[in-house]
Amino acid sequence: MEEIWNGILRAIELIVTLNPEVMEITARSLIISFTAATLAAAIDIPLGGLIELRVFRGKRALVDLIQTLYGLPTVTVGLLVFLLLSRSGPFGSLELLYTPTGMVIGQMILISPILIGLTISALRGVSPHIRDTAISLGANEGQVIRTIIKEARFAVVAAVLIGFGRALSEVGVAMMIGGNIRDYTRVLTTSIALQTSMGNLETSMALGIILIGISMILNLSLSRFQGR
């Protein structure tokens, strides 16, 4: 119990004194995960739109598969991407392993099922009459998809925020693809792992509290946004 209380105090101390290492790690976490969420959204939201609005064989199975992948273990994704980016793997020549860019790619893959799946759910919540109205007013397929996404925009933004949150708090991909290199790929989650293995439980707790704090802010924004 002592650790938790001391952890809270240490967290406050780290934040108030703007501890440079912690600030750097936090900023890096946010940048990497935010980039991953934004890029993934750019691909996954239209993709979700296409999947939901087209009719094709095996659609149901595909959606089921996507939803199953929501809970992909982060270490599994980490391993998969590692095998792709390793020097001995197909994309080794791109030299993305142990770089922040590699981490972004890994996290994009990790959260894509969530983004695609939740976009599909969001679109299902839109009245089918909207689709008819848009079509009858002359919209083509792309315009219809955009219109329905726009109608579901609150739920879609919520999906992106959820994806962002998942990317921010995951450790499997960050560790395997980033390598926790100080001043380069070290982020909050990998720092927590490191501090824990070193036995620095208070610092580890403090970092965890900072991470939770950021997640709380995220979720509050989400609720405010949805409350409109």
């Binding site: 020097r87 560790m175 390598g179 490191l194 293995s197």
Partner: peptide, 15 residues
């Protein structure tokens, strides 16, 4: 500075 366990460090050194 890899801040990692031995196995991961070896893999990084290898890469």
């Amino acid at each position: 500075d890899a801040g990692s366990p031995m196995g991961a460090t070896l893999i990084m050194a290898n890469e």
